[in-house]
Design a protein around this nucleic acid. Structure first.
Lengths: 254, 254
DNA sequence: ACCTAATGCCGTACAATGTACGGAGACAGC
DNA sequence: GCTGTCTCCGTACATTGTACGGCATTAGGT
């Protein structure tokens, strides 16, 4: 994994950009900027929502904002940083966890649902999750709000953090599955039609008895959307009840 | 999401490549090939293991195999298909689930552990998971073997499939977190040193009481590796016990 | 034994992308 | 008014995937 070397100046610039609204900006000479970082981030998010993360190109975003490509670099150091800003801004817009008098179980379920919905609506967020999450107000604010929900269980600090990661990892992965199954559903029938002859010749039911019957492998092309929904609800139930059970056993054991 | 249109011929070619070892290949005229698809896939996997998926370029793999770039296209239609072949080949090499007289719980735990290890050792597999899993012998064989383990619980077909997805999604996401935390640990100290001044000015403990204390947000730069390990074990415990609990309640209720 | 057509290997070329470099003009503070 | 810095941007280059077509090789039909 030959990574590029760590650059403290770049790191600082990124943090400053992430927290730009909380920092007093020095008065600067030079012409007034015709566009702002917020403009760039907003248009880039629109683009990603519509056409996916790979469509977020410097040239594309520049055109959306109404400037020439290289002007983007007057506001943002590189594409990677732009994506970090997009992630932070998107998560900042996420609705706060429902806090109105819900029981702990309902609150956790709502937490998972909210994240699932958000990641389904903005699949590029999952794509961008390869990199370390940007330490901006959006990400940290979301973390804080969600910690408050999980903290109601009274677990140790370490377990509280682990429980939240567990919930979020599930919501994100399930959302990715949902999105994939929807995309596959479009040409699922045609896909099976095209490869069926070859597959059925090679997929001996003796070698693969379960795959054929239980069938995500062979059958997901048709029923994938329903399977994804069921898998999500199944997982959400397991996730939430497991965490609640742990907190109760901890309380009983003490 | 402007996807490219579905091409049945391409789909068929991909499937034929995936199952190449199971299909009788027609005798063809022309010079004997100096390289094989297996060579390409093997070298590409080595490259991905060492330098990550983005380093798997056509030119790079061609150089590794000892041919000129365009020769690659005589064997594989495009990079996307090459990656699909890599995924299937890698998963085919995964050790089969331990079947030797383990209890169900131990077997499920081992299943999660095996997948976690594999995805930590080959992080590019998680990167490649954006696309639909290739329907090759490796993927389907793994699915079949793992279904056999989960099927011991006696859940419905639908729930068995959902339970397996649940286990695998967890293992993969946790592995990605592990890899990320290791990478971050390298320059974690320097990162904090660089951005600390700005962050501490802006991160008011009144606004963010939990993040600071529980602290993956602020503290993961130092303790991320340990946190990731704990989060993995925490999640594995929850995942496995939740599924077992379901199977037992189902048995009791019937 | 020859011809035909398919096949493997590859040189050239092009489009898309990120971004380094440097210039021209605008504007704040001395 | 001078100076230094900032915005906007034209040009240019490296890297990537891959389309196109040429050349040599070889199996199968005659």
């Amino acid at each position: 994994m030959t990574e590029t070397e760590f650059d403290p100046v770049a790191a600082r610039r990124t943090i400053t950009l992430l927290w730009r609204k909380h920092l007093v900006e020095a008065v600067k000479p030079g012409p007034k900027a015709r566009i702002s970082v917020d403009d760039l981030v907003a248009k880039a998010i629109l683009r990603a929502d519509r056409e996916g993360l790979p469509a977020v190109t410097i040239r594309g975003v520049a055109a959306d904002v109404g400037v020439r490509p290289m002007t983007v670099y007057s506001h943002v150091p590189d594409r990677e940083t732009l994506v970090a800003l997009m992630v932070d801004a998107s998560l900042a817009q996420m609705p706060a966890p429902a806090s109105g008098g819900l029981g702990v179980e309902a609150a956790l379920t709502a937490l998972v649902d909210d994240n699932h919905h958000w990641y389904v609506a903005h699949p590029w967020l999952a794509d961008a999750h390869t990199e370390r999450p940007p330490m901006g107000p959006g990400v940290i604010g979301k973390y804080e709000r969600e910690l408050a929900v999980v903290a109601r269980l009274g677990l140790s600090d370490l377990d509280t953090d682990a429980a939240l990661s567990f919930l979020l990892n599930f919501a994100r992965a399930a959302a990715a599955d949902t999105v994939r199954s929807r995309a596959d559903a479009v040409d699922g029938g045609r896909w099976w039609e095209a490869v069926g002859p070859v597959l059925s010749e090679v997929l001996d039911p003796v070698d693969y008895p379960l795959s054929g019957r239980i069938g995500t492998a062979a059958g997901s092309a048709m029923s994938g959307a329903y399977n994804a929904r069921h898998a999500y609800e199944f997982g959400r139930e397991r996730t939430v009840t497991a965490i609640i059970a742990l907190s109760e056993s901890g309380r009983a054991g003490r």
